[in-house]
Amino acid sequence: MKWPSWRFIRVWQRNRDVFLKLWPSEVTGFVVEPLVLLLAMGFGLGAYVGMVNGQEYIEFVAPGIIASYAMFSASFECTYGSYLRMSYQRTFDAIIATPVNVEDVITGEIFWGATRSMLTGTVILIVATAFGLAESSWALLIPLLAFLQGLMFSSIALTFTAIIPSIHSFNHYFSLFISPMFFFSGVFFPLDSFPDIVQRLSWIAPLTSAVKLIRACFNGEFHPDIWLALGLIALITLVFFVASLVLMRRKLIV
């Protein structure tokens, strides 16, 4: 396999320029929707649920929503977004005819997906802080964590994008992988309320680790398993990053 070079920045810059032009049309999905969810769940459901793990429900659910919408951002960007650029717009073909290679393109896409995660996470964090929900100054690390988990979800998404036969296959990706994680990774309820088997499956779901880390920084309460979560994210990212590079070269350079 070939490794990427610094030229991946060029692809990141291209996506940034397009985003700066088109962002108003994307604001609803990644800003309005999570904030509505935060308020509805936090204040609406929170009134019934009362305290969770010794804190207000809205304080419990806020970091979960940051992590899940960071996941959604990277996932949409590197599935539908990347696929459109690759197959319909042939943008990847145009770029790899220049000194920028396939590996640079894929790495640029992954870093851009992670940037989207960070932007989304940061916006929700700022609003949550304005409501007085974030208590710890460790919360300043959350944008960085959102970026890291964005690298992970972008790599997974691009690996999938490299192997699917058509754009319709993304339905499966979202309904069988992304959505279940949204509900079974400790975003809305603590994991220990689930049956044993679900808890075990949930433990390896990539979103679970992201939620653990972001919640720890949000509340300033650290359990030793955050190191495990960090290690798991690093491992999953590495595996899928390499897989996406190899599979994309195989797909694009025939």
Binding site: R7, R10, Q13, R14, D17, V18, K21, L22, Q89, R90, T91, D93, A94, I95, T98, P99, V100
Partner: peptide
């Protein structure tokens, strides 16, 4: 395979960046 997300000059400036 022009970049439909960018305008005419945007296509050229972005492409220039690929060549550094």
């Amino acid at each position: 395979n022009l970049d439909p997300d960018l305008n005419v000059i945007g296509n050229l400036l972005t492409f220039s960046r690929y060549f550094n």
